[in-house]
Simulated scan of single mutants.
Amino acid sequence: MSVPSDMEAHLRPLMLKALDGDAAAYRALLEELRRHLRVYFARRLAPALAANGDDLVQETLMAIHTRRLTYDRAQPFTAWLHAIARYKLIDHFRRNKLRMTLPLEEDAAIFATDDSEATSARMDVETVLATIPGKPAELIRQTRLEGASVAEAAARLGMTETAAKVSIHRGLKSLAARFGGKADG
């Protein structure tokens, strides 16, 4: 399970407001992060080490506070957050000379919340889509990434369904020619 886009959509504006000096937004952000980080660390610590989770939450919140000015406003906030949390967890394991082992049947819960690959892939897709004109890119985004039907995407952009299909086809063909893939999507 990757970080839901609504989580990013909720946390990122709070971080941006906090960076701009909004104390209420900063308090709200820290409270949201505290709840999220508790779950994050609980999934990664063995039950015998669960008590360390609160310490890791506090360490991570302190790191976020002291390093908040290093956050790049153009990047996803949750990727930055999880990078810090991951490093705090690694530091904890090293400090305590711990090696985590996990039965293979339980690995999905551990890897489920690491969104760095999904975030990176989404950024790559957005970069690629930025190389084609606006309407075809938006149609591809809506139909191929967000799951809208061609009719829905066409209606949102004020196009006929046929024109939208042609635009999607041409956009995919352009991407395939540029990046060497198949255009049939």
Rank of each mutant, 00 (worst) to 15 (best):
T101L: 02
A108K: 14
D72E: 07
L61S: 01
L45V: 07
A112I: 08
P136V: 09
M123A: 15
R95M: 04
D114R: 04
F111M: 04
E117D: 14
P133D: 15
R95H: 09
R94E: 10
E59F: 04
T143I: 02
H82M: 10
V39Q: 12
N96H: 14
A148M: 14
M62G: 09
S116H: 14
F93W: 15
L49Q: 10
Y87H: 15
E138C: 10
Y40K: 03
A79L: 06
D124W: 10
V128R: 12
R73H: 11
D115N: 13
G53P: 00
T119M: 11
E138Y: 06
I140Q: 00
A79K: 04
M100Q: 13
D72A: 09
R67K: 07
L157Y: 09
A74Y: 05
M100S: 09
N52S: 08
E126M: 15
M123D: 11
L89S: 00
Q142D: 07
R86I: 01
L45R: 11
T119Q: 12
E126N: 15
E146D: 11
I140E: 00
I90V: 15
R34M: 00
Q142N: 11
T131F: 03
T113M: 06
V128D: 01
H36P: 01
A63P: 00
T70V: 03
Y40I: 07
L145Y: 13
E161D: 08
G53W: 01
L33C: 12
F41Q: 00
D115F: 06
H65G: 10
R34K: 13
T70I: 01
T119E: 14
R43F: 08
R99M: 13
D91H: 06
A154D: 06
D124Y: 13
A85D: 01
E105F: 15
P136Q: 07
L145P: 02
R94C: 03
Y71S: 01
K135T: 15
V39K: 10
E105Y: 13
L157M: 12
W80C: 01
T160M: 02
T162M: 12
P76S: 05
V125D: 02
L49R: 12
D124L: 14
I110C: 06
R86Y: 12
R35C: 03
I84W: 11
R141L: 11
R94T: 13
E59V: 03
R38M: 04
I64T: 00
A118S: 08
E106G: 04
L129Y: 06
H36A: 14
T162S: 14
K135I: 14
L33D: 02
T160W: 05
A130E: 12
D107W: 15
D114L: 05
A109C: 03
A79C: 05
T66F: 07
V39W: 14
E59M: 03
A46P: 04
L81E: 10
